[in-house]
Design a protein around this nucleic acid. Structure first.
Lengths: 406, 406
DNA sequence: AATAAGTTCGGTAACAGAACGAACTAAAAG
DNA sequence: CTTTTAGTTCGTTCTGTTACCGAACTTATT
């Protein structure tokens, strides 16, 4: 339900500008809004009255200390509407609520229900309700939920393909099932894409409109932004770095299944290479520990891994030329690796590229989901589908990450 | 100069919708425009009267044969404004005029002035004037010129960097010089980017919003579109496929200068490999001829080249996942090569990708430039800078490519 | 007194919708 | 085959509403 049934297009436009001013500039007087938007004071008063009546904004107080009459200031009513954002991982599920004022509230984390399928659906729904309850937000205020999933969402059928980490999702209409349980619109998005959006909003690359977020963990994948927009690709398969044609011979039959690069940069590949060199079986954190302890084999394996990652970064730079590249994921966020990649990159790519570790860490997808949800929410509530009437998200400082529960 | 000085935003919006309807649906009656836009007949009549007064549209005739009163139909006045589009190559310069009705008129071609620098500037200016004169379009109607250049345009300084094929352009403010000679706004764009836009507009990939145009000739480069928008990259260096980190060892010092892939797929690399195999010195067309004649060395060299190209396509697909890939350029448009790449691609990348030869051939950049210029022209003339008010270009059928002169 | 905030009061642009005349086609009547 | 008439569509005129601006005015504060 939009703010108004069918207002004139110019009203919708003005209303959108007013809301943008209020969302961005916190408590603000009507006179200031008039100056900022260029609309007349009279128009602002009219729109503000309407918005206050409908419960979207409220008075906060009055200005003081300035010459002239003091002004009444207005702010958005934060819990007039909210969205849920969920990060579904193979081992953990996180859920959080984000409100209209762009605060991310009440984060809840649990181990993923190992039974998969409908059990995970119920778990997600329960976590969303818990997160809302935890912040005393009536559940009816929830307008939509953004769910980050480890795989490629099939937007037409609501399914998730190529998702080996969560069982029983290939044949299930996840979106429909979740929509039924939660009663709101569901947006499915790849978790790495959400991470890129999150970093773009308030992370290491805030403000850089051309960026790549590379997640290195079990596999290797990237979320790309070009001109501030996410690159999804024709079949929602953009950023599948595992299939970059180097690392191993891309023309081997095996590379069609696992991916030429994934075979050497993924957890399995790293452990295999360490085993072949040293004869010892270690998990990846163990190999990093061995590196710290001075193990030459560990060093060799991670040097080699860094070379492959550097080449992957070079490939991205050659193709989309981002302004900044962020590394994340359990392996990608290790400083030991990032520093190696940073040293190697100038040796295989001519123009320098900024390379950083993810700032938001494991919360990045939740934050990205909030960005997606809030953009969508603002747009449907206040822009009313008018092309060109868009409310940009306020800058980072407004957002607070509340302590995780549990 | 826009159509009107400062009309209300809603009027500008309506005007834009009316123009879009007229541009797209050829001669159209006011009643039809009203149905299509959802505006009232009265509003349409008002706007149409204004547009006719200002000389942007005119009556064409009347409908006949239908039930009911016959309607007066309107069309755009094609030569009310026009743009020039130029493709500056190392050996040839092409120039064409495109009018408001999106027809590409009067194409003129000449060998590039070998003296480079300002001589080429004058040559371009002269060709634009000739092209306009050739179609009896008064030169004053020209509103802007889009120039495709072989290199990376530096938008701030108006220069062109990394342009080895045209001499004396590194230190010259090309945009300012051209603007001074032509007296209109100049847009500089990389020629491969224009090619991608051209193919997207009326070429092999019309309608596919995620695509890659790969030009293989002296070097290898790509123009990428994501979601219908061109990918320029942070430093305007997107699509520099020559620096993809395979083909030769990307960590060799030489690869920082020429590019690991460029060293094997460029003209120089292909000729070198053939020389090393056969002991004979042939140019690239010669090697293709030899292939036709059954030369095993030529076959080996081109097979290998095709493998590298297939890997480059695979890299693009892994990163941006386009719906279609178009090959062009003097080498890339050879069917012998494209067929080999088409056979090899499924062996190194799991999901199938459509691969085609460029339909527009050597004219693709001119057409892309026309698309850029006309979009810009429509937008400044009729959208008046109102966000969201955009006129999309009409479909392919409207465009006619007039025979080349000379 | 100066200044800024906010309201009230015309005036105008833009648009929708109804009513109406004009123009045209098709089919029935002659 | 011609004439008439009914039905349809086009386009204009008129009226009422929405949205906006700007100026004048009131109110509150330093």
């Amino acid at each position: 339900m939009a703010v108004n049934e069918a207002p004139r297009i110019s009203r919708q436009f003005s209303l959108c500008m007013v809301m943008e001013a209020i969302v961005h500039c916190g408590p603000i007087s009507r006179a200031s809004i008039a100056k900022q938007t260029g609309l007349s004071k009279q128009t602002i008063s009219e729109i503000a009255r309407q918005l206050e009546e409908d419960g979207w904004i409220r008075e906060t107080g009055r200005t003081q200390g300035h010459v002239g009459r003091s002004a009444v200031t207005y702010e958005i009513v934060p819990d007039a509407a909210c969205i849920a954002t969920v990060d579904l991982g193979g081992t953990k599920v996180r859920a959080a609520i984000a409100d209209l004022s762009c605060q991310v509230l009440a984060e809840v984390t649990e181990p993923t229900d190992a039974r998969g399928g409908v059990h995970v659906i119920s778990q997600i729904a329960r976590l969303c309700r818990e997160a809302a309850a935890h912040n005393n937000i009536p559940y009816e205020r929830l307008r939509m939920a953004v769910v980050g999933v480890p795989g490629v969402p099939d937007q037409e059928r609501g399914r998730i393909v190529m998702s080996p980490n969560v069982t029983g999702f290939e044949t299930l209409d996840v979106r429909a099932a979740l929509a039924a349980e939660l009663g709101v619109e569901i947006v499915l998005e790849n978790d790495v894409n959400l991470a890129a959006i999150g970093e773009h909003w308030i992370g290491s690359v805030a403000g850089v409109d051309d960026l790549a977020y590379i997640a290195i963990g079990t596999g290797i994948g990237a979320g790309l932004m070009v001109g501030g927009d996410l690159v999804r690709g024709f079949g929602n398969a953009a950023g599948e770095l595992g299939f970059l044609p180097f690392g191993t011979d891309p023309f081997e039959a095996e590379s069609l299944k696992v991916g030429a690069l994934e075979r050497v940069t993924g957890t399995v590949g790293i452990r295999r290479r360490y085993r072949e060199l040293s004869g010892r079986e270690l998990d990846v954190p163990g190999i990093f520990d061995a590196l710290g302890a001075g193990d030459v084999h560990a060093r060799q394996v991670l040097d080699e891994t860094a070379r492959y990652v550097a080449r992957a970064v070079a490939a991205i730079c050659a193709i989309t030329n981002p302004g900044k590249v962020v590394l994340g994921g359990s392996i990608g966020s290790r400083r030991e690796l990032v520093e190696r990649v940073r040293d190697l990159l100038p040796l295989c790519f001519p123009s320098p590229v900024e390379l950083d570790v993810s700032e938001l860490g494991s919360r990045v997808a939740i934050v990205g989901g909030a960005a997606v949800g809030l953009t969508h929410l603002h747009s449907t509530l206040f822009a009313g589908g008018v092309p060109g009437a868009e409310i940009s998200l306020p800058p980072a400082k407004v957002v607070k990450l509340v302590e995780a529960v549990q």
